Structure formats: C-alpha cells, structure tokens
Amino acid sequence: SEEKKKAKERLERLGASSELARELLDRANGNAEKAERLLRKLL
C-alpha cells in the first residue's frame, strides 16, 4: 500500500536498511509509528 511504502521510506531515512525497514513494519503489523519506535530503540 502507499502508506506502507511511505513508512518504509521514512524508516530508511532514519537509518534502517531496506531489509530492516521491511522487518520492522512486519513486526509492527504495518503500524508506521510502532515500527519507528522499534527502530529508535535499535539505533
């Protein structure tokens, strides 16, 4: 979806690899905010 694509791009801008961004979104069930929080914990 367009929303998921935007979320993935945002995670990548924050420093996630394409693969990591995809994994985070999967774990967050597509929830962009939750995926971002997970990423911030990792960085």
Rank of each mutant, 00 (worst) to 15 (best):
S1M: 12
S1R: 11
S1N: 12
S1C: 09
S1V: 10
E2D: 13
E2V: 10
E2F: 11
E2Y: 11
E3V: 10
E3P: 08
K4D: 14
K4V: 14
K4F: 15
K4I: 14
K5N: 13
A7I: 11
A7M: 08
A7Y: 07
K8T: 15
K8W: 15
K8G: 07
K8Y: 15
K8E: 14
E9M: 07
E9Y: 05
R10W: 12
R10I: 07
R10E: 05
R10L: 09
R10V: 06
R10H: 09
L11A: 00
L11E: 01
L11M: 04
E12M: 15
E12R: 07
E12H: 06
R13C: 13
R13M: 12
L14D: 01
L14I: 06
G15P: 01
A16K: 01
A16M: 03
A16W: 03
S17R: 02
S17E: 03
S18A: 14
S18L: 07
S18H: 08
E19D: 12
E19M: 07
L20D: 01
L20E: 04
L20R: 03
A21P: 00
A21D: 00
R22H: 11
R22T: 14
R22C: 15
R22W: 13
E23Y: 14
E23T: 09
E23W: 15
E23R: 12
E23S: 09
L24M: 05
L24Q: 01
L25N: 00
L25I: 07
L25E: 01
D26P: 00
D26G: 07
R27G: 04
R27I: 13
A28C: 12
A28T: 14
A28R: 02
A28M: 09
N29P: 01
N29C: 11
N29L: 09
G30N: 08
G30L: 04
G30M: 05
N31S: 07
A32R: 06
A32T: 07
A32Y: 15
A32V: 15
E33V: 11
E33S: 09
K34A: 15
K34P: 00
A35E: 01
A35L: 06
A35W: 02
E36P: 00
E36F: 06
E36S: 04
E36N: 02
E36M: 10
R37T: 10
L38K: 03
L39N: 00
L39Q: 00
R40S: 08
R40H: 13
K41P: 05
L42D: 04
L42A: 06
L42H: 07
L42S: 04
L42N: 02
